[in-house]
């Protein structure tokens, strides 16, 4: 399936959860990322159960400030 991650199209296997996407995408410090799925923020407890579908738009948002985590943690 194709997902739009931070504005870029990428291909992933079907049935991926948000938690799995954080691992597969090697997101830096996933415990501190805010996740928006199709424009709505997900609660942290939704990451495991929420399965992604073809065409879903996912935004990973990071804390940013000098001395912060953040930066381009998505790979």
């Amino acid at each position: 399936m194709e997902l739009v991650i931070n504005g870029e199209k990428k291909t992933y296997r079907n049935g991926l959860s948000v938690s799995e996407l954080l691992v597969e995408g090697k997101v830096e410090m996933p415990q501190y990322v805010s996740v928006q799925l199709n424009g709505a923020f997900l609660r942290r407890n939704e990451f495991d159960e929420r399965t992604l579908r073809d065409g879903d738009q996912v935004e990973f948002l990071y804390y940013m400030g000098g001395g912060s985590a953040g930066g381009d943690g998505w790979s």
Partner: peptide
């Protein structure tokens, strides 16, 4: 606003009318 490495981001907060920093990240890391 925040900046780090090669990135920056900013958000304007109009209290009571638009999202604030805690709407985005409820607490600091």
């Amino acid at each position: 606003a925040g900046i780090i490495r090669f990135q920056g981001q900013l958000l304007t907060v109009l209290p009571g009318r638009s999202a604030c920093l805690r709407c985005l990240f409820p607490s600091p890391p």
